[in-house]
Nucleic acid binder design. Structure first.
Lengths: 223, 223
DNA sequence: TGTTATAATGACCGACCAGTCAGTCATAAA
DNA sequence: TTTATGACTGACTGGTCGGTCATTATAACA
């Protein structure tokens, strides 16, 4: 017993890997783990140890990459939404795309990229925890909502000028186009267990409500 | 100053009252305080001591009326919504009321009784904390959502038969009528600080989108 | 192989808080 | 006036969890 390290030497099977990683990769792993935890239980109920365990590392390691729990959360929610944006406003720049089709694509994109993925939990998270994190809310309003509304406003104006809208005043209320998407998020994350919502049908019905019925020749509105 | 109330009268400023109350009244006071706290900070961030302080009593007293924090919360959110329901389905039983007017009243009621009161925070609370309290979510789906949708379905069917709907298929998707209300809740509790939303205009525009334009004589749909 | 730099660990600390309970006192009954 | 009641109080407990840091393992390099 001359060597003092003996105390630590005879570790059991449960030994941890203590693997070193590329910092970027480690960071991404932590974010992925945090995403799963926060989406599952919310901000308050998620423990840093849960996140660490899920990432397969020790709690202290998390703090090598993020200063505190709040920053972990805010960086997570700020980082996820951005990729979607790009696709959205490519819809508006191509003027050849009929407005109705563009809005329809908007819904399709939303279904495929948000509703039908784990991202939907994240969106609900922002709604849920928003008031406790004004910075996050402000970010989302500025980066997502404002940009989305701008795109929709342009599309709706174009549609109104072509006589495609059943109610031309819609161009002044782009929020209305967003509302079924919001409903779909809430419903699928809250009530789906009790009553199924057919989101495809929801969006289709809504589109038929916003736009005048399709026509063989979209040019001549009045015969 | 001859009566015994003197003992209670000239207490020093910092002194607590230790006032006895009718249990029902005390209970109501606690619920009111809890409402304010939960609405302001959410479930997790609210301390039982905050609730007690707001009600002007000691923490222990809260536990004389509610077994634990969770029950305080669930009894609170379950108890508040019920009163509104009555008014809603009185709208559907009077067949003389034109459907459009009934839906319009639905929105007006929603604005006056929810959006423009503190109740709006409660509704957001349910959206936010829902997943952590399945019992509450289930209750709301059963008591509020289902009943609301049933009423709307009847109204929309009636409207479709009269030819009032721009898209008759709406009768099969009453959720669509609810969606702007949901948007209004989220917006006013989350984004209002950054960008004002004119909810009156929102609902008016939406009504004009759902229903065919008003006519001098609502009877004859076809001239 | 020995040395150094640093990523990783997890025991530990202290703040926080839900829930408890022994004691207090306003009130009402005797 | 005395006694009994129970609503009310708030210090306390037990447990939880965010965040720290001395120690240890690993990689890179000499």
């Amino acid at each position: 017993m001359t060597d003092q390290s003996v105390i630590n030497r005879d570790r059991t099977v449960a030994e941890r890997k203590r693997e070193k990683r590329d910092p970027q990769q480690r960071r991404a792993e932590i974010l992925a783990a945090a995403f799963a935890c926060f989406a599952e239980r919310g901000f308050a109920a998620t423990r840093m140890e849960d996140v660490a365990a899920r990432a397969g590392i020790a709690k202290g390691t998390v703090y090598l990459h993020f200063p505190d729990k709040e920053r972990l959360f805010t960086e997570l929610v700020s980082g996820i939404a951005s990729p979607i944006l790009g696709e959205i406003d490519s819809l508006v720049h191509n003027e050849a795309i009929p407005p109705r089709f563009a809005v329809s694509m908007f819904y399709t994109l939303f279904r495929r990229e948000v509703l039908e993925t784990e991202r939907r939990h994240l969106l609900r998270l922002i709604l849920a925890e928003g008031p406790l994190f004004p910075a996050v809310t402000e970010f989302y309003h500025r980066e997502i909502i404002t940009k989305g509304l701008t795109v929709l406003r342009i599309l709706l104006k174009r549609a109104a000028e072509r006589g495609d809208l059943r109610n031309p005043l819609l161009a002044d209320m782009p929020q209305i186009v967003m509302s079924p998407a919001l409903l779909a998020i809430i419903w699928t994350t809250l009530f789906e267990a009790y009553e199924h919502l057919d989101t495809q049908k929801l969006f289709d019905t809504f589109l038929d409500t916003l736009f005048v019925p399709a026509r063989a020749a979209p040019e001549g509105a009045t015969p």
